[in-house]
């Protein structure tokens, strides 16, 4: 009843309103892109080093890891959930790879499989905690997993890092094809693949459906629990994959890897226009959010801003992005 005045099909305004809501979305996306460009412009004025090839490559390769983590986070947020365990899953998966390679003497490919498999399993565990054990919100299950996975990662080598990996393991993080780093190509493939998965397969559409209205999705015959398990498994898998890139780049794995990565990923996804209320968002915009955060961090570094303030700035960005999300939802609602 609250919105009846504006939903009547006889009112001539219906079309305009649908358009104006779509416009609001478009404007927002344009706004995010413009903020990124503006931020780059400001940075290049403030610091002559910003626009150098070296620095941009550095930003991009740091962004690559975050971009991959953000895919899983995007999926979780799309289902109105969250995955707080991505950083720890990244650490534990890569530690397992290090142990397989270094201690057990496994070949590089089996070791990579151990990494990805660990990530997927930890993700699935997140999913099952939610769907089978029926913990009230993924915030709880993934927060628990965050601590448990980090604890195990620290325990398995008594907190010691493992380094010196074979070339195959370093390939994703350290190699280039021509001038283009392999990690960039990987990110491009993952994002394009994910775009098509989400928009052109029924499973992808069902993820949106579950996020948009869980009960309606269930009554429409969608196996909601299966979708949720899949989403958290994919989130674990992308976290492990990001870990593989990171391990290749620094040629080491360490138990405190990926600390606080969930914060940046959440910020990137929300800035990218996905809604905490679920069911809304596009993977293409997530990459813009990732770049925005990466440029912000890099710029603050270049300007020698105290890391304490950097932490503050990222926090502020998250709060602002979520506040804008709430505002947008209200605009959408009142437009109905």
């Amino acid at each position: 009843m609250s919105n009846e005045a504006l939903t009547n099909d006889k009112l001539p305004g219906e079309k305009t309103i649908a358009k104006s809501a779509a416009m609001t979305e478009k404007l927002y996306q344009l706004g995010v892109l413009l903020s990124l460009i503006l931020l780059c412009a400001v940075m290049s004025v403030l610091s002559p080093r910003f626009m150098t090839m070296d620095n941009l490559m550095n930003v991009a390769s740091q962004a690559a890891v975050s971009a991959i983590v953000s895919i899983g986070m995007f999926l979780a947020i799309l289902t109105a959930g969250i995955d707080l365990s991505v950083g720890s899953v990244l650490a534990l998966s890569t530690m397992m790879m290090g142990i397989a390679s270094d201690r057990w003497g496994w070949g590089p490919y089996p070791a990579i499989l151990v990494c990805l498999g660990s990530g997927a399993l930890l993700g699935l565990a997140n999913g099952l905690l939610l769907t089978k054990l029926r913990l009230p919100h993924p915030f709880i299950s993934t927060l628990g997993m965050q601590k448990m996975a980090r604890g195990i990662a620290l325990f398995v080598t008594a907190a010691a890092p493992i380094s010196m990996f074979p070339e195959e393991i370093q390939f994703l993080g350290n190699n280039s094809i021509g001038q283009v780093p392999v990690s960039f190509i990987l990110v491009a493939i993952l994002y394009i693949g994910m775009y098509f998965f989400l928009t052109r397969t029924s499973t992808g559409r069902y993820i949106y459906a579950v996020g948009g209205n869980k009960e309606a999705a269930r009554l429409s015959g969608i196996k909601v629990n299966g979708i949720l398990n899949l989403v958290y498994t994919m989130s674990g898998l992308t976290a492990a994959l990001a870990g593989l890139v990171l391990a290749g780049r620094v040629n080491a794995v360490y138990p405190l890897a990926g600390l606080d990565y969930e914060t940046d990923a959440i910020a990137a996804v929300i800035i990218g226009g996905a809604s905490f209320f679920g069911g809304v968002g596009s993977i293409g915009n997530t990459i813009i959010g990732v770049l925005l955060i990466a440029v912000l961090r890099n710029g603050l570094n270049l300007l020698n801003v105290d890391s304490a303030f950097q932490t503050f700035a990222i926090g502020a960005v998250i709060v602002v992005a979520v506040a804008v999300d709430v505002l947008r939802q209200n605009v959408m609602k009142s437009a109905r």
Partner: peptide, 24 residues
């Protein structure tokens, strides 16, 4: 609104949701 439809999705999405896996 609570159980039948996904309000933030399109008419086409809602109408085809049940057998979507068959349309591809």
């Amino acid at each position: 609104k609570e159980q039948g439809l996904i309000l933030i999705q399109s008419v086409a999405f809602n109408a085809t949701i049940v057998k979507m896996h068959k349309y591809g």
